[in-house]
């Protein structure tokens, strides 16, 4: 099996498409979360290797979720995603564990693999 992935996004349609796309390209999607708090719990419970994390979430934003996940040191690889352009998000905080950013419309297994 390929790497385990957790998808964090508040739009069900994106989660469904991303799951299909990634599974098709050899990743194992072990869970989905629709907000930041859910993401933190799911990471603890499922210990995925990769977290595909939407920047804009209804409760705490993706940057904050990434910061909390990487604060422990032993965190999964985090890849940020958004339907906005990367230039609209301001400087991405470079942190250990945050591997990079993929625009939602350009998401593919290959793009994800390239960042890991």
């Amino acid at each position: 099996m390929g790497r385990t992935v957790l998808i964090v996004d508040d739009h069900p349609s994106f989660r469904a498409s991303a799951r299909m796309l990634l599974e098709c390209e050899g990743f194992e999607v072990v869970g989905e979360a629709e907000d930041g708090a859910g993401a933190l719990l799911a990471v603890q419970r499922l210990a995925p290797q990769v977290v595909l994390l939407d920047v804009q979430l209804p409760d705490i934003d993706g940057f904050e979720v990434a910061a909390r996940l990487t604060a422990n040191g032993d965190s999964p690889a985090i890849v940020l995603t958004s339907s906005r352009d990367v230039n609209d998000l301001g400087p991405l905080r470079e942190r250990e564990g945050v591997r990079g950013f993929i625009p939602k419309s350009e998401l593919s297994g290959a793009a994800l693999e390239a960042l890991l």
Binding site: S13, A16, S17, M20, L21, C24, Q56, S83, K104, S105
Partner: peptide, 22 residues
């Protein structure tokens, strides 16, 4: 716009890419 049409277009783009691969 962000929550509506944009999300639908994103998911459409992903479906198209998937369809193309298959």
């Amino acid at each position: 716009l962000h929550d509506g049409a944009q999300q639908r277009l994103v998911s459409m783009a992903l479906s198209m890419r998937l369809a193309r691969a298959r």
